[in-house]
Nucleic acid binder design. Structure first.
Lengths: 203, 203
DNA sequence: GGGAAAACTATACAGATGTAGAGTTTTGGA
DNA sequence: TCCAAAACTCTACATCTGTATAGTTTTCCC
């Protein structure tokens, strides 16, 4: 079914291109990102990419900017306050909702080594994520020096990466819950006398 | 200065191509992997790629096969038995020794979504890694049900990914050490809670 | 030492890709 | 209403890329 049915509304080309990048990367990887492939997916002429973004690099940077903004606004880690099973499910649900978007961000993480603009955006994104974890740990009265937040976030990040690629959801879910237990363990070891395994009800 | 100085010894072309792939991916990403780019780096004619590997996909698969074998043999996580500071330094040293190789494996992890052959190899690699962690945890008498090994490995994996891209070594080092402390915490909490304590046979 | 097989090169070409330039459509404001 | 700017398309072309084919060099082994 060739669906060149209706043209996009005037002014929607730019956004359509950004969305198309996510899809093309998910389907064919960065190797598949060409002016024509992206434009075809977006339903516009391939020269429109140059008009809006100047180059493929510019297109990728703009797409990442867009993706980062969305991720930060949605703060997928919002429900992180409690590290219980509900948290695990909500985290996985967030990633499952838009796997292509997450995949794209991982691609850009690797790309950041070769592109300063991308690097800056990835740094911003990751600092936001780690900051969110840090906040959650602090609320539980945990010592957040020594990069505990970074360690916890890296565990979740690594698990989501595997979730999106090679490891089945059930195992990932268990492992995410384990991360929650590790946090509890951190609480115990820093507060040696604590008997209260149950976190105090929301204050 | 054209430096077509010395040709490769006869029979070395294949290996030279594999090594070249790692370099090209590190420098230009998967987008930069073309017959000519890889062949030029290896110092051979670009048609040699087809002769040995059939296609770019075949070339990437063969390179991954080679990379996985090396990683498994070296077992970069060998010194994982103790989760102390020495372990952190040795882990980072291993990754630092050949960052391009690690980067390539992360690229292939993402690629595994679109390539069954790559998927099989990445699965093998990750199972080996998780298995190594599991062994280390068992030796400490820890309960390894519930995917604790997967969680711990994911933390280290996620940290190495950041180490290779956006986060400075000092922070990574601290975080890796934190992972070690989390393992200790796991030990405490499994004793303290007595929830699902299955004694591991330390035979 | 001779011949087949494997490794490798040379060349040529079709199709894909990036890019330039000129033209068309739509929007929005004076 | 009109016009300038922005959004967008069309076409053309040079370059890059993959691939086929034929030929050369080296190795291996009987």
């Amino acid at each position: 079914m060739s669906q060149h049915s209706r043209r996009l509304p005037y002014g929607d080309g730019r956004d359509a291109l950004l969305a198309a990048v996510i899809d093309v990367v998910a389907e064919k990887g960065l190797r598949g990102v060409t002016y024509r492939a992206v434009a075809a997916r977006a339903g516009v002429n391939h020269t429109l990419v140059t008009h809006h973004f100047g180059s493929i690099e510019g297109l990728l940077a703009a797409t990442m900017e867009w993706a980062v903004q969305r991720s930060i606004e949605e703060t997928g880690l919002a429900g992180i306050a409690d590290f219980d099973e509900g948290f695990a499910d909500s985290l996985m649900a967030t990633v499952s909702a838009e796997p292509e978007l997450q995949l794209f961000q991982f691609e850009m993480l690797l790309e950041s080594r070769r592109n300063p603009k991308i690097l800056a955006m990835v740094e911003r994104l990751y600092k936001t994520y780690v900051g969110t974890v840090e906040e959650a740990l602090s609320q539980r009265g945990l010592d957040t020096t020594g990069e505990a937040s970074l360690a916890i976030f890296a565990a979740l990040d690594g698990l989501m990466l595997q979730f999106l690629t090679i490891t089945d959801p059930a195992k990932i879910r268990s492992a995410v819950i384990q991360v929650g237990k590790l946090v509890s363990g951190l609480l115990n070891s820093s507060d040696a006398s604590g008997e209260s395994r149950r976190p105090a009800t929301t204050s």
